[in-house]
Write a protein that binds this DNA or RNA. Structure first.
Lengths: 138, 138
DNA sequence: CTGTGTGCAAACTCTTTGCATAAGT
DNA sequence: ACTTATGCAAAGAGTTTGCACACAG
C-alpha cells in the first residue's frame, strides 16, 4: 500500500496542498474504496476508527480544500448535512427520503436530452440528477 | 381578489389546515405569482412587507405543513438554506453557484431516458435535475 | 367553549472562525 | 527558520421546540 500512499501524496501536491498526515489519511479513506458519499461526521468517525484522530474542524477544512481542488464535490440534497462525493463526473443518485441516505445509481444508461441553454454569461458547471425514493406503501 | 382568497381558504381546508390569517397570507404570497422558490427568510420578509407580521417560527411551521400537504415541496440544493418550490411536479432548475440563486429552467423539453429501477421496496417519489451554473470566465 | 395555531425565546445541529500550537519543506 | 496546517473552543447560521396566549370553528 506504500504505492497508494505515494499516489495520494503526489495528488495532493499537484493541487498545491501539502500532504500532511491528516490530509493523506482523509484522502486515503475517501479514495481507497471507489466512489463514496460521506458527511463530515462520517469521515471524522472513520478517521478516528482508523487510528488517525483528526479534529472535526480539520475534516471540514480538508473537504472544502479537496472540493476547491476538484478532487471531490458537494452533492445537492436537501438534507441538513452536506454530502461530499468522491466521483466528480456528471453522474446520478438515489436519495432515500426519511433515511437521508445517498445511493449510487447502478450501471445506468440514464440519459438527459435537450439540456437547455444557460442564461447569458453563464456556463454549466455540473448536471445533477437526484431520484428521490420513498419506501413503497403496502 | 376576494375569489383568490376564497380559493386559498378552500385549498387549505381541503388539506385539513385551518385557514388562519397567517396561513392564508403565506399561501397567497406563495401562489399568487406563479411558480416560485423561496427560503423561509424571504417569505418572512415578504409577509412583513405585505403588512402581515408573521413570526419566523410560524413560517417554518407553515411551510412544512404545506410540504406535508403536497402544496409545495423542498428543493434539493446544497445551500445552507432550504428552498421551497411552489411547483410540485417533476421539473428542473438552474442553480447559480456562489450566488445561491435558483432559476426555473425555461420552456424546456429536457428529457430523461432510461430511469433506472429503484431498489426493492422503494418507489420513486420525485426526479430532480439540477443544472449547476457558474459565471463564464472571460 | 374547545382544540389548534401562533409567537417568543431558548435549545439544537451543522458549520465556520480566531488564535495558539504543531508540523511540513 | 519560515510558512502553512491543525486543534480547540467559541461564535454563527439556520432550524426546531416548549409553553403561554390568541384565534377559528
Amino acid at each position: 500500500m506504500a504505492d497508494a500512499v505515494t499516489n495520494v501524496e503526489t495528488r495532493l501536491r499537484d493541487c498545491g496542498l501539502r500532504p500532511t498526515r491528516q490530509r493523506v489519511a482523509l484522502a486515503d479513506l475517501l479514495f481507497a474504496k471507489g466512489d463514496r458519499h460521506l458527511t463530515v461526521e462520517e469521515l471524522h468517525e472513520e478517521a478516528s476508527l482508523a487510528g488517525v484522530p483528526v479534529s472535526l474542524a480539520t475534516v471540514y477544512n480538508t473537504l472544502h480544500q479537496f472540493t476547491e481542488a476538484g478532487l471531490i464535490r458537494v452533492l445537492a440534497v436537501e438534507s441538513a448535512r452536506t454530502y461530499f462525493d468522491t466521483n466528480v463526473s456528471d453522474h446520478h443518485h438515489f436519495f432515500v427520503e426519511g433515511r437521508n441516505e445517498v445511493l449510487d445509481i447502478p450501471v445506468s444508461n440514464l440519459q438527459i436530452d435537450n439540456i437547455p441553454e444557460p442564461p447569458e454569461g453563464m456556463e454549466i458547471a455540473h448536471v445533477d440528477v437526484i431520484i428521490r425514493l420513498r419506501e413503497k406503501q403496502r
